[in-house]
Design a protein around this nucleic acid. Structure first.
Lengths: 182, 182
DNA sequence: TGTTGCATGTAAGGGGTTACATGATTGA
DNA sequence: TCAATCATGTAACCCCTTACATGCAACA
């Protein structure tokens, strides 16, 4: 029931169509959550059955109508309860750390290249984060947790902190592998 | 084909049974990789079919024999190629960051409690990491990437770096939420 | 006229978790 | 004798990704 709560978080802000939700997942939320439209549409239907959202059908392009989903009071209660609950621990699967663990089975020169590439990817992401951060921090009411911008900034700060930590670690790996190769 | 390479990493060190591989996944590797025995046994059989491991059946408890898996030359080549390849980006799903994003839909006091609990969980993990670190760093040849201990230390350093970064971020969240509540 | 974006759905398949199932050995 | 550990396997189910499928509107 995790996609369900991710959708409720987005719908709490304003009513949206499934297409819009899928786009926001892809474009902005994707740093910490993601889902395909093929997963979102059935879930929205199930949420309607459970009374968490109401669906309003209007005119739209294509063979089917455009369906706008609105969160119900019951949906808001469900969301508030979930927000206060402890995150269920999810198993981690990190290919890069697995490669670090298995360093003994790799060509050191090739492995250094893998880590250097990761450092560059992270740098590109950090540069992008900085741009967005400048935009968001200029917004009024950014320190008020009740505004959507607050949550946006907080999740961005997480992205920055974790990318920096990972980049530094990758850099350390490159250093150790390089000095050993010499 | 990711479980496959995780198993090859472990088998590169020494021959092992499926049970042993499952235990190591659960006990030590689980910080960055995990798999259940119900997934491991069929995968080992498939790997044998593909000539990546050989299986030796011996006496064992229970109705079936004890099967020791040994990596083949072909398995080592497969592993070396994979180690030098770029990690395929996996979608992130982080419940805690999702809660930070949706801060506006939560009771601030309850949300602070959720983040404080995470800080404590991370502290317990960091304490455990420090114990293991002391043990590993005392080992000889720890700076040689060819030894299993090197990979062990590197993955541990990743765990420490990412836990610290996450803890600091969670602390920042608590600060912002608390000052807004007042 | 062709491509991109809007808009909603279904189907097949892969990866993973949980539960079911069996049974020997070792130690409390 | 009871529990934990060793040891291997199967089955059902859930979540998710990829691909298939349809068709309008706007723009180049």
């Amino acid at each position: 029931m995790l996609l369900r709560h991710a959708l409720l978080v987005l719908l709490a802000e304003r009513p949206q169509t499934g297409y819009e939700l899928a786009r926001r997942m892809r474009e902005s939320l994707s740093w910490f959550w993601s889902a395909q439209h093929s997963q979102i549409y059935p879930e929205l239907a199930a949420m309607e059955d459970d009374g968490l959202v109401t669906v309003e059908v209007g005119d739209g392009p294509g063979p089917r109508g455009r369906k706008t989903c609105t969160i119900t009071d019951r949906g808001r209660v469900e969301l508030r309860v979930w927000m206060a609950s402890e995150p269920t621990p999810r198993p981690v699967r990190d290919e890069l750390v697995l490669r670090a663990f298995g360093a003994g089975s790799a060509d050191p020169v090739e492995l250094v290249a893998v880590f250097r590439a990761e450092i560059e990817r992270l740098q590109a992401r950090l540069d992008r984060y900085d741009e967005i951060r400048a935009e968001i921090e200029a917004m009024p009411g950014i320190d008020d947790p009740a505004t959507p911008e607050f949550g946006w900034l907080m999740s961005l700060l997480h992205g920055i902190a974790s990318a920096r930590a990972r980049q530094q670690w990758a850099n350390e790996m490159v250093g150790k592998l390089s000095s050993a190769a010499r």
